[in-house]
Nucleic acid binder design. Structure first.
Lengths: 264, 264
DNA sequence: GCGACTTTGTGCGTGTGTTCACAAAGGCTT
DNA sequence: AAGCCTTTGTGAACACACGCACAAAGTCGC
């Protein structure tokens, strides 16, 4: 829009890109690798429980469900923590990955929204086990406030800012209904939280520097449904149409009947 | 291993790759696009509720939290469903995306494991609302079997195969403890299920042709922790070390103390 | 009926992720 | 102590994804 008016419309707009790239590649571990480190860590813990002291990239990769070359490259981003001809020492690797992920310190978590899901989350063992401590349960419903759940007392949402600041909450888990999620998110961010885990089925908007991760059951189901449909009568070409393209009306002219098929 | 023994060790091993690629690029919508279609669909439903009949790629992209070019490219994989100079007709697009995702038919879901999480899932509105019908709740605990939850009676895990086959379950949701997940998974797959949504913190192994999607709270938290650590004292270089590499012992020799720091 | 304006659909350059394949490196055996 | 065997760490090729920028295409006003 205003770009073409204020600058000559040439082909090389490379300058702003490179700055951003340099900035991110700084000492950065690739995002895809970061997402897999917890999986490796879990597999390593399992090996530890079985008393295994050393593991090869091949074995660990199998346990983690990935390609062994990928695993080696991932680990190489943390440093050279393997011994050629032998493999990786489990305990040492556990420590290094834990350190890289920031699990050598405790993170304080608050759960906002204590419905079915919020209660399930509060009771989830995976929280307490490794570095995450739930320090607050908050809800807007006066009927739930005051209830005791998993050793915590549900507090009113009005206490949100106080709880976050006084207890040093750095990760907020949003388990509210969709309608409340953005408001709650804005409040936790304003109170200083920079990491949000969102279970509400909405796209949250946050300022730069705040991380949001989304867990969305219904999206996962829809993705599964897509592939399931493909398997049933899709590109395998076992059923009717070998090329199932649009067959009905050739444009958006009458739209009243489509919605029937969806909501019915 | 046996590759280098049976074939000359040249540099071009391109033939097997291309076959697989051709096969997958067949009529396929990119996986990244598939993962975003549910987000677009949700945004479109929201627009519908507000009585908006037409939307531009820019507006829809903003609502979905993505770049408008990406949105247009994603939608272009479904066909040319826009009108230049105008935008997209909401209802028509809802229909097309729903159809592509396989939401014009109903999918029968069974939830295995009725603990805190399983109960929360059973009551989750996102299930019933759009094309997913929970037709079974199963658990191994005799103390829970027979309970009524959200209009369903919890059945014993022994009924698993019967429930799946008689009710036409095509998606299994595994919400069991980690130890039971793989066994349950094997059983649902043997019973004919080809789509699994796994909430248990394990890597499930399934045969070719079966899709598994994973929802893992603890992994998400760990990813957040990683970024949070970076923000606090990482590459911003505000604290002590500007280059925080390994400082202690230079190799895996004594490993007994690392685990302390992690589990303590 | 025509021109100006808006918005789609996409070609293209770029960056990120994945995989193969192999040299370098270390331990183990003889 | 020398060579063999195993396994890491990584260079390079390939595949996927992203976003800019623009031509094509259609609408709306006059």
């Amino acid at each position: 829009m205003f770009r073409s008016a204020s600058s000559p419309p040439k082909k090389q707009a490379v300058t702003p890109r490179q700055i951003r790239t340099r900035e991110r590649a700084d000492r950065g571990i690739p995002e895809a690798t970061v997402a897999r480190l917890p999986v490796y860590l879990r597999a390593l813990h399992s090996l530890q429980d079985r008393g295994i002291a050393t593991v090869s990239s091949e074995e660990l990769a199998t346990a983690a469900g990935v390609n062994s070359a990928k695993l080696r490259k991932d680990l190489s981003h943390l440093g050279s923590y393997g011994t050629r001809g032998v493999g990786y020492e489990v305990e040492y690797l556990v420590y290094q990955i834990s350190r890289e992920l920031g699990l050598t310190q405790d993170w304080v978590v608050a759960i906002i929204g204590v419905g079915n899901l919020g209660r399930a989350l509060a009771g989830y063992g995976g929280f307490a086990s490794r570095g995450f401590r739930v320090a607050g349960l908050l809800d807007a419903d006066a009927g739930i406030v005051g209830a005791h759940i998993c050793g915590l007392t549900v507090e009113h949402i009005d206490e949100l800012e106080t709880v976050i600041k006084d207890r040093g909450v750095s990760i907020a888990v949003i388990a509210t209904p969709a309608g409340a999620a953005q408001v709650v998110c804005d409040r936790v961010v304003a109170a200083g939280v920079t990491s949000v885990l969102n279970f509400a089925p909405v796209v949250l908007t946050v300022p730069e520097g705040v991380d949001v991760r989304k867990v969305d059951l219904s999206i996962e189901l829809q993705i599964l449904a897509f592939h399931e449909q493909r398997k049933a009568g899709g590109p395998m070409g076992d059923q009717a149409e070998p090329e199932y393209e649009v067959l009905e009306g050739d444009g958006p002219s009458d739209g009243a009947q489509y919605i029937e098929a969806v909501d019915a």
